[in-house]
Amino acid sequence: MELSDWDLVQKCQSGDMASFQELVSRYHQKVYMVVLGLLHNRDDALEVAQETFFRAYRKIRSFEGGSSFYTWIYRIAVNLAIDQQRRQKRNPLEFRETMDGVLEAQEETARDPFADVHDRELRENLARAINELTPEHKAVIMLRTIEGLSYKEIGEILGCSEGTVMSRLHYARKKLQDKLSAFL
């Protein structure tokens, strides 16, 4: 029978490294996805994702199960990614090229039905539009879109109220719609 996240956490707290490895295996892709959505750079996203689990390992004994493990891990990940964004000194052109690289590469394995030029333009503008959002607005979009988390869960992760999550989401979506309406 598969152990729950909390069972694994408790075993980690007793020093069981294999249990921590299992938790990493469950969440490493999800964490990477969120962080990539925030940073739009593969290398940075990988760094931050691994750092997230390192930090979780160091702090695992202080985790008391008040929230779910994934809420806790996303909180670490998003905070690290937001810190990274604030340190990031990339200009918009370089950023867009990096995100383009991300969007182009996925064509090789994409299950995305869009393959025409129109779609490429949409992707380029999407990358630009996301980049123009603040880290906090990007974070709500990523957590909602990628993970389908509730406003309550997003609020727990970002340390803000459900009302704030709602208004940030609404703002972020409106911005994206405005910038992309010609392509959608």
């Binding site: 490895q21 990493v24 295996s25 490493h28 892709q29 999800k30 990477y32 996805m33 990539l36 959505g37 593969r42 990988l46 994702a49 691994q50 991300v102 969007l103 590469a105 996925q106 394995t109 994409a110 299950r111 995305d112 869009f114 949409l122 992707r123 999407l126 996301i130 979009i141 990523m142 879109t145 990628i146 979506r173 994206l176 719609q177 992309l180 959608l184």
Partner: peptide, 24 residues
Amino acid sequence: IDQILKTTLLAEAQQIEFLPFWRG
């Protein structure tokens, strides 16, 4: 918008193999 974001990032994440990540 949701669809594109999700599929793009999901495709990226699926390329991340566990063992090299864990070694990191």
